[in-house]
Every structure is written in C-alpha cells, then in structure tokens.
Design a protein around this nucleic acid. Structure first.
Lengths: 284, 284
DNA sequence: ATCCATATATCAAAAATAGAGATAGAAAAA
DNA sequence: TTTTTCTATCTCTATTTTTGATATATGGAT
C-alpha cells in the first residue's frame, strides 16, 4: 500500500471524480484510474462505484477513508517536521482577509522574508469563515482571521487591533446600500449586527468581490462600506472618502493569527508569530 | 518519502548495519545503500554515519526514527485491518511455549484452520519472556504465555490450566540435576522457586534446547524435569517416566492467550480467542 | 432519436525507478 | 600483511509508472 495510492484515493473521495482528482494531483486521468485500480487490486475490494455522476465511495471505501484520513495528515506532519528540522523550510501557506492582506501584510511579509529567506510563502485571501475552513482542511497552515476563535479547534495569537469605520463618499454624503464582501466576512457580520441594533435592518446589501471595488463604488457615491481604518488608508482614493468611527461595541475588532490545534508550527510559522507579537507590542 | 524507505531506515537503525538490514529486508545490500541515500537526498541530511563498525544513527536520524516508529506501526495496523475487512486474512503470527505447542496446539490449530481456511498461520516457539518481547516488538500477533501478564501492556484471555508435575525416570528414581529450558521459561522459574522453598536451592541446573531432549535425558536417568502434565503425556516414552504432582502453590499454572494492548485482533485472531474460550469452558 | 458533454477504461510507447550482481575501496581484525 | 567485513558504485535488466490518444458509457438537450 503505497502512500501515493492513499493520497490519490482521498483526492478522489473528496472530489467524487477521477478527472477532478487528476487535476488536483497534477497528472492525467488515466493515472488516477490506474492507481485506484492498483489500490483495489491490493485490497481485494472496490473502493469506488463508478457511474454516471462520477465516483461514489463504497462501504469498504469508507473504512479505507477513515484510515487514510488518520494516516496521511500524520505522514505529512512528520515530513514537514523533518524537512523543517533539516533546514529545508516547508512552504508556509498563509491565509488572510483581504483587508489584512492590503493593510498589514506587506510590512510583515517583508520582515518574514528577511528572517526566513528560504521559506516559500504563499498567500490565499478570503473571508474569515472560508479561511477557517481552509485551516481545518489543512489547505493552509495559518491565517489571519477575526476573533473570536474556537479554542477547541485552533490555536491563535493576537495580531492586530482594527478600528472599524464607516466609509462614505465625501462629495455625496448620503447613506445608500451597504457594499460588502460575500458572506463569511466577519466585518460584514459586524456591520449587519450594528445596522440591526441601529434599527436599520432593512438596509440593502450589495455583495462585491474585491475591496478595491467596494471602495471605488463608495467613492462614486453608490453606498457606504464598513472596513478597518488601516485597510481604507491604503486605498489610493482615500482622500475623497468620509470616514466615521463606529459606535463602541462594534468599533474595535481583533485580528488573530490562527492555526489548527494539532498543527506543529514550522520555523517560518514561529517567526511569523514573533513578528506579529512584536508588531502588536509596539503599536499598543 | 516512500514507506519502503522508512521501513528500510528502521531496519538499518535497529540492526545498525546495511548488510544485516539487507538480509532482514530480503534484498541485496546495494539496495539498502540506494534507499538510505534516497531518503537522505529527500530530507537533505544524512541519517546514518557510516564507518568502521557499521551504521550509527545521526542526531537527525533520531528525529526520523521517532516519526518512523510512530508511523509505520499505524500503517501496518491500518493495512491489516483493511485486508481483514476485505476478507483477505492477514497472516496470523502465533507464538507459544514449546510445551503448549506440543500438548495444546495441534487440536486448536486444526479447529482454527477449519474456521479460517484462508488465514496463513505461522508459529514461533520460545519461553514466555521471549514471546512477550516478540509481541511487544510486533514480530508476532498473539502468543500463549504463562500468567501473570502485565495488563498495562497486554490484553489476554485465559487459555489452559496446566498441572505441573515432576518427571523422573521410572527405572532409576533418584533425583539429579534439574533439566530445564534456557532462562525466560516460566516453568523453569516456577521450578526454581519451588526448589528454593524446599531448601534445594543448590540443585544443579542443566539447560537444554528442546522439550524432547529434556524428557529423553530424564528417561535415561540423567536428572529430573518439571513440566505441564499435558505436555509430558505427548512424549512417546511417557510410560517409562515417573510423574509426581508438585505441591500446592506451584502445581497449577495458567496459560493465557496474549496480545499487545494496542493491537486490533484480526478475524483469525478473534476466532482463536473463541476457540480457547470454548476449550477452557468444556475442560473445567 | 441524435448529438453533445462529461465520465471512466483501455492500450501502447516512453520514461522513470528499483532490483540484482559484480566489484571497488576502506577499515578493523587476525 | 593478509583476511575479513563493511559500505559505495556501476551496469544491466526487469518492473512500474506516466503519458497521451482513444474507446466506451451515460444522462441531458435539441
């Protein structure tokens, strides 16, 4: 039972498709067929039922899946740990909210690159909910997300304290619809609860994909947005925006650097923790 | 990082020798060299220092060893479980004391073969101490050993109650030296403590390798032996032996079927448990 | 009914990998 | 020194894996 077969099996089990798995595994589809067949030949039982809609896992496959989902992360964790100990930095797969990425990460990542020049760093942006899900599925190693964080599933250290402000067009200072990220964004949740408490629960909400886009629309007077002040300050057109602090319980939001509770941080990860710790200390 | 490399690594780490590992892994020595080099190339660090006396593990190798000793047994256990669930019986590696093997196993194994015709069964005989060590190192799956058993490390079910008897030559009924197995045999330990309690602690002990050999010597009047009555009854020359029961605390010894506490029993293993359970019930 | 889009299976050739066996070289033991 | 006992290296062969092209099956749209 080779580890590549297990990995392929899990990939197919998750995607429920041989062809999708082939893309995920960066190989041609016939390889997936061949690997799954090898696995089935070795175990003497089919693990997928192939049919019209793709591949559905069999009952026996479920048993294999339980074992595979236990074994593979252990294997990967061991390998990461060994490579890290050998000085071969494992890639640090980072996640961050788009606002954090815009306002906070440039300086942090620059410092991190100096501390760990050999560690490849990748960044994936998304709302808090999506990032937590990526963390849980071990697609990323650590992420900057808005608190609070489930302490039973994640470890975290405080990273930044953000001040939420209401951004409106300076020229045309009337409120309109709320321009927000898609669901899962914690700032949007904060904005919505403030609106509710303020008796404005019928405010129209327009979802947009990028922070730049939202601020552009605000600048054009299309509506208002709620975002961390630090992020808005990075916007090139910040001068034509009217910023107002939110009232007390909604104004201040803490961003945490978070990772799975059973994830052993690599050297680069630890360095990042130190960096945000220092950063927080000097800013307070 | 392939699993074969890890297995080879552990084999070398245990034997501290590439050539010995090659024998253990049933391949030529150059393969071991090549696998360890592959492993080292992947991890970027040497895991063994090669030199005069063979291969000594490096500090980095120790870290790898920790991971490997955690991962490999998990892998093997998962594979056994899956094959077992698929109806492909994993080989049942059995251990037993020589006396148990002679007196009890023939009928038990015959019944087991009928219940699990496809399960390959292998048997390794040795004294209790050696069998427990084999169990602990996962070289065998389950073994018949003399109680008591460390319940923190092993599970067990009672299998047989043996009655220890003193065997002497019927013709020349004088005591001489004690003919016993090599150290580690629990019957020998019982015999020695009985001799001590009886004030005969200076009795000469001659070690022999096989049960047949011991009884042959006893029959020839060379000395006496202590063994389970059931085992002695299988000896072809039992008619010319004089058997005497041992006094109370030493007479009765229980044999248990034992396995590692973290070892998930296969179907064949469970069948064996049932068999010895039935056997014990009808004999009592 | 036919065609199309989307699945997995199959096959042959190429590439990569692992294996055996012979031998070299180094270092301890006799 | 000679012998023995290690690991390293090299070549050839066998096996395995990957690729890419193609075949086959199925449900849905026209």
């Amino acid at each position: 039972m080779d580890i590549l077969l297990l990995r392929t099996f899990l990939s197919v089990a998750e995607t429920e498709s041989f062809s999708a798995s082939a893309q995920e595994m960066h190989c041609v589809q016939s390889n997936i067929t061949s690997r799954i067949r090898r696995l089935e030949a070795h175990l003497g039982q089919p693990v997928f039922e192939r049919g019209r809609g793709g591949a559905r896992i069999t009952e026996f496959g479920q048993l294999l899946r339980q074992h595979a989902e236990d074994l593979l992360p252990r294997f990967d964790a061991a390998e990461r740990d060994l490579l890290d100990a050998a000085g071969i930095s494992a890639p640090l797969r980072l996640g961050a909210m788009e606002t954090t990425a815009a306002a906070r990460l440039p300086s942090i990542l620059k410092a991190l690159k100096q501390l760990c020049p050999t560690a490849p760093i990748s960044l994936r942006t998304g709302p808090t909910g999506e990032l937590l899900s990526l963390l849980w599925n071990r697609k990323i190693d650590t992420a900057f997300v808005a608190s609070p964080i489930d302490e039973n599933r994640f470890h975290s250290v405080p990273a930044f304290r953000e001040h939420l402000v209401l951004a409106r067009s300076a020229a045309n200072n009337q409120t309109g619809p709320l321009l927000a990220f898609r669901s899962g964004c914690s700032y949007r949740a904060t904005a919505e609860s403030w609106l509710r408490s303020d008796g404005k629960s019928d405010t129209e909400i327009i979802e947009m994909g990028t922070f730049e886009g939202i601020l552009g629309c605000v600048e054009a007077g299309m509506g208002f947005a709620i975002a961390p002040e630090s992020a808005i300050r990075t916007y090139h057109g910040v001068g034509s925006l009217n910023l107002t602090a939110l009232p007390a319980p909604y104004a201040s939001v803490e961003t945490h650097l978070t990772w799975r509770i059973d994830h052993k941080p690599s050297h680069a990860h630890q360095a990042l923790c130190h960096l945000v710790g220092e950063n927080l200390a000097e800013s307070s």
